[in-house]
Design a protein around this nucleic acid. Structure first.
Lengths: 195, 195
DNA sequence: ACAGCTCTAGAACGAACGCTCTACCCAATT
DNA sequence: AATTGGGTAGAGCGTTCGTTCTAGAGCTGT
């Protein structure tokens, strides 16, 4: 078989969660979209809808982490890296017709009340991304405190700018955020490592 | 009567949308929470669930706009104003047990696909808030281009930081964003108006 | 007294929800 | 050849969804 049924379920769910959130995504829709059946879904995920969603969120986390890591590695200067990252996100968002936003935000906001496994998976995702940015900053010589605070802000701002871009169906908010974040990073006056 | 039935419906719906999004909020739950009945809801809002949601989003927009305006007016320096704003948001968020986040984000993310009235209401909200920030910056002597780009970024970052704060159940992301945004604003080196 | 109106009340409808259940297919093992 | 078990298939369960509908309560103007 080309791709395993389990993988098809996870990938399809990730995209659905990204577009319509947790509550808005039905198990039967997942079945249709992933070309699986209810039987298969409950076979691989005895935990039901939430278990599928947790796996999908983790998948989305890794996908975005790969994109982020690539952007961070491709530019020695962290400020340039942030700009590159927002540019890529803006392009992807536009290409999808403004529907494929952050893979966890929508699901995260709906599951805040109860402290479910799903909510933890979302928190893990955000924190993992933040760590990638922080490590980059540390590697560039930023002090630990500044690196931590900057990293949180960068991820938060990108997150928020993506939502704004989606709602306005425009790349501008993301690109503006990229430029301003770059300015903020540079304001610390730390030279990028020469190589 | 103390508060009109219509107002009770709108206010209750606004809080529910903020906490559980559009899809996650049921008409019957709105009825229970607002101490109204289905008959009343459909009487005041013949458009059904979406019409109620649109009214609620507009209510949420005004509520947050008031908070934002107060923060902006209380501090002559826009950088200080941003910090004050994030501080207030962080306090409110913590007090609510991390559930009362941005009144429009959750609903906005779920209704991105179809271009509904609801989606437009969410876009209007974000743009309205951005305009408040922009006007403050313009009033402080920022050039039009910088003011626009900064304002978008400030709103986006606050938006994103609020989500991050909710997911991590911590005030830190919001406070960090406030400090970093203040630094960014100050980096333009424009003196606040003396008065 | 009565008609006319706004607003309240909730039973009832079809559709969709998450989930359980039984039946079946088919390759590997005995 | 028979058996086992992972995986597929979907009918059907009870519940909840958004909406519609009829009935009546409370008030105003004639």
């Amino acid at each position: 078989m080309q791709t395993s049924t389990r993988d098809r379920i996870v990938v399809a769910t990730a995209r659905l969660l990204q577009r319509q959130g947790y509550v808005g995504t039905g198990i039967k829709q997942i079945a249709t979209e992933s070309q699986a059946t209810l039987g298969s879904i409950y076979h691989f995920f005895p935990g039901g809808k939430e278990a599928v969603a947790v796996a999908a969120i983790r998948h989305g986390e890794q996908e975005f982490a790969a994109l982020l890591k690539e952007a961070l590695d491709s530019e020695p200067d962290p400020a340039d890296a942030v700009v590159s990252c927002t540019r890529q996100l803006a392009a992807g968002l536009k290409e999808s017709g403004w529907v494929d936003g952050c893979p966890v935000t929508a699901a995260a906001l709906e599951t805040l009340g109860a402290d479910s496994e799903l909510q933890k998976a979302c928190a893990d995702a955000l924190n993992g991304w933040e760590r990638l940015v922080r490590d980059k900053l540390l590697g560039c010589g930023f002090p630990a405190g500044d690196a931590r605070e900057l990293a949180t802000t960068v991820i938060s701002a990108i997150e928020g700018a993506e939502v704004t871009a989606q709602v306005n169906r425009s790349e501008e908010p993301l690109l503006a955020a990229g430029r301003q974040l770059a300015r903020l990073v540079r304001s610390y006056g730390i030279d990028p490592p020469r190589r």
